[in-house]
């Protein structure tokens, strides 16, 4: 599609300028709420809902510019919440890579009677709203004695995941069959074909599954709310709750907290975006 941006084309420059204008306008629109959130995190509480709104991050011009951030880091147990969130999200993401690479590969490449029905089941169960299954889930976790541990937030991720299974099934299916057939002729077992031939090729897709799982688990609220009890186990979203009281919320602290809790995700995105982008390059290996 972009081959039309070839430099020696007469109207290429115009096209480029129009392209940039469109992208820039959309980027401004899309970043606005984020900028608003950043500015609010540098405001005093009484200025948050002032009208017409002010865009001055007032605290930056005082002698305590990072007051809201300092309060979060020093007065609350945010370091602990951060560590917990990082641990849970990391483990759950690893679990997803493990479970869905096996599952996705089997669905794509291994024959088993009824496997398509099984796949349909994995997909369709993702439609059930968590609100109605969460209480039974809670009772199951309690029965297993897992309440107030990280297990309920991690173990299920090692077993099943609709998004990852679907994505990797598509990915493995797009890889050429010839490689596997060649290895089979050489006497490789089905597991060796998976492990030595296809899994390395799938590396970008695995990274993508990892990142998405990490992001989703980082934001998860309802399950930690019900499954965790002790302050030492709380995750970041639970920690952010402490800025909301019965009738009012400390919006400046909430915004600062939200900015901080987004940072790890931004970093992970930046570190892995190259892989995320290649994650779907099924045919890429063909060429």
């Amino acid at each position: 599609m972009t081959a039309n941006l070839h430099p020696n084309r007469g109207n290429a420059r115009v096209t480029l300028i129009v392209l940039y204008a469109v992208l820039l306008i959309y980027a401004v629109v899309t970043l606005m709420p984020f900028i608003w959130m950043l500015i609010t995190s540098f405001k005093e509480p009484r200025d948050v809902f002032k009208l017409p709104p002010s865009f001055v991050p007032k605290l930056l011009f005082t002698d305590h510019p990072f007051e809201n951030y300092v309060e979060i880091w020093t007065q609350r147990d945010f370091v602990i919440y951060f560590r917990n969130s990082a641990f849970v999200s990391f483990m759950a993401a690893v679990g997803q890579v493990f479970a869905t690479s096996l599952g996705g590969y089997a669905f794509a490449r291994l024959d088993l009677p009824g496997k398509n029905w099984l796949f349909a089941l994995v997909l369709v169960t993702a439609f059930v709203p968590v609100e109605v299954t969460i209480i039974p889930e809670f009772l199951i976790m309690r029965g297993l004695g897992w309440v107030d541990t990280f297990l309920p937030l991690i173990v299920p991720s090692f077993l099943v995941g609709a998004f990852g299974t679907f994505m990797l099934r598509e990915y493995f299916a797009s890889l050429p069959r010839d490689y596997g057939d060649a290895a089979y002729v050489d006497g490789a077992t089905p597991f060796q074909i998976f492990w030595k031939v296809y899994l390395p090729l799938a590396q970008p897709a695995l990274v993508a599954v990892f990142v998405i799982a990490f992001i989703n688990n980082w934001d998860e609220l309802l399950r930690p709310l019900l499954f965790l009890n002790s302050n030492e186990l709380k995750t970041v979203p639970l920690g952010l709750m402490s800025f909301v009281s019965q009738y009012e919320a400390s919006w400046t602290l909430l915004m600062a907290g939200s900015v901080i809790s987004t940072l790890p995700l931004i970093i992970i995105y930046m570190l892995t975006q190259k892989y995320v982008l290649q994650g779907f390059v099924g045919g890429g290996v063909k060429g």
Binding site: I134, I135, F138, L139, R142, L221, L222, L225, L226, N229, N231, L238, M241, S242, V244, S245, Q246, A249
Partner: peptide
């Protein structure tokens, strides 16, 4: 002690009532 805003308090308290905790 534990505390959460009302929106999260009631689901959690209800779940605890359901499990007898």
């Amino acid at each position: 002690t534990s505390a959460m805003p009302p929106k999260d308090y009631w689901p959690r308290l209800s779940a605890l009532a359901a499990s007898g905790d």
